[in-house]
Design a protein around this nucleic acid. Structure first.
Lengths: 228, 228
DNA sequence: GAATCATAATAGTAATACTATTATTTTTGC
DNA sequence: GCAAAAATAATAGTATTACTATTATGATTC
């Protein structure tokens, strides 16, 4: 997808970082290479020391951007959800028909990620894999409630709410629009994971996409639930 | 729930432990107290050293039961899924009507856990909370594929497959029974989590249960998908 | 009563996740 | 072009983790 507005920057809660990684070359290298490394070795094995030596910088310099690797993960995943939200709004803005709009919305959040040349230091395809494999670790912590209060998850929640609103537009009588929206967003990550690792408990394959499954699920549910 | 068969033991893959914790008093204390501690401090902060001092034992003694805390988590969560499966089979075995059986099945896997006095050293209510907060960490690792080959996740997958089969019985024409089953099992944990921490993106509350939402979701989907 | 087994105690290691301090390099403002 | 400021790098150090290894002690059993 082409980014028509050249000056668009995904806005991340400033409390997540110590220094904005977008503000320097080192910062961008931290983002770029951390995406590659977390993909290669997984989040638990990834350390700031390893990242430092990979980018020919120093552990201590990375700490000037992020307090710890958990905050870096929050940054990366927030960026991803912000980027997805941008695509969602951009691609569905002009659709007036509620059903078409919802269908397209589900497609966007459940599809396999394609590269976006607009943000040169970020590989969205790999970032999507990180979100699939690591996102839940960012909120399954003892500090969730504090961090939620600080607003670390606003972008994600806003995205889910957009889907919820699109659901309500299609069927105002449906009782569980937010639960259905959160099920689709989280469930999409899960189905992509199952496809790769637990194929026996999913019907998603190379031929059958999570998008098909979820569009079928949502519309059939909403059709049945008309008028209560 | 009463355990009618007094000799029932939840069978866990033997590769998960070094020595069966059910085989000794120390082993049972390890299980009992680790459940309490993981609930109190979360899985990342929990260590074998802390557990040792809590049960008046030694770190090194715990290593004679479990290779590491990841394996202990696999043990605890496998036990939970095995226990749930036992309840599922037991409570739905005699139901002949496919719809009733599926409805009851969904109820069982999505409901809030009640204590089961049958296994005295295991607090199922707290174990359920551990599963909600930590289960995905047990498979979101770089070793999933190896561990899956070793059979560490069989109980979970078997449970999902049981739901999938119940779905197929209700509507043989439905195209995504496994995806729907895995969505319900994983989604139930997620909705319970959202209820506690991200209330704005769920409709589940004290009054509205995840069971209601999922039963509505599954049956409406299956009704629409009859005959193709 | 000796042998075996389980548990406990102690010590040690490499790595992690930092903090602190100082040194060097780069940028900028005049 | 130079001084001051800011950014980065280097070095060292700490508490904790996640173990392994060895030995000692206590309990069980043949």
């Amino acid at each position: 997808m082409e980014r028509l507005l050249q000056s668009v920057k995904i806005a991340i809660n400033e409390k997540i970082y110590v220094k904005d990684p977008e503000s320097s070359d080192l910062g961008k290298r931290i983002i770029k290479e951390s995406i590659l490394m977390i993909n290669e070795m997984g989040f638990e094995s990834f350390t700031f020391k390893k990242l430092g030596s990979r980018i020919n910088s120093n552990e201590s310099s990375i700490y000037r951007y992020f307090e710890n690797k958990h905050k870096l993960l929050l940054y990366l995943t927030s960026w991803y959800w912000g980027w997805l939200e941008y695509q969602l709004v951009f691609e569905t803005n002009s659709i007036s028909d509620a059903k078409n709009k919802l269908s397209r919305s589900i497609e966007i959040i459940t599809r396999k990620t394609k590269e976006d040349s607009a943000f040169s230091h970020i590989n969205e395809v790999l970032l999507n894999k990180i979100v699939i494999n690591e996102y839940s670790k960012s909120y399954l912590t003892t500090e969730v409630d504090e961090e939620n209060k600080e607003g670390y998850f606003v972008i994600y929640k806003r995205l889910v709410n957009r889907i919820s609103l699109a659901i309500q537009k299609v069927n105002p009588a449906y009782l569980y629009p937010s639960s259905l929206a959160s099920t689709v967003v989280e469930g999409a990550l899960h189905q992509h994971f199952l496809k790769e690792h637990f194929a026996s408990i999913t019907d998603c394959t190379k031929e059958v996409t999570p998008s098909e499954y979820f569009i079928n699920l949502v519309f059939n549910t909403l059709n049945q639930n008309f008028n209560g």
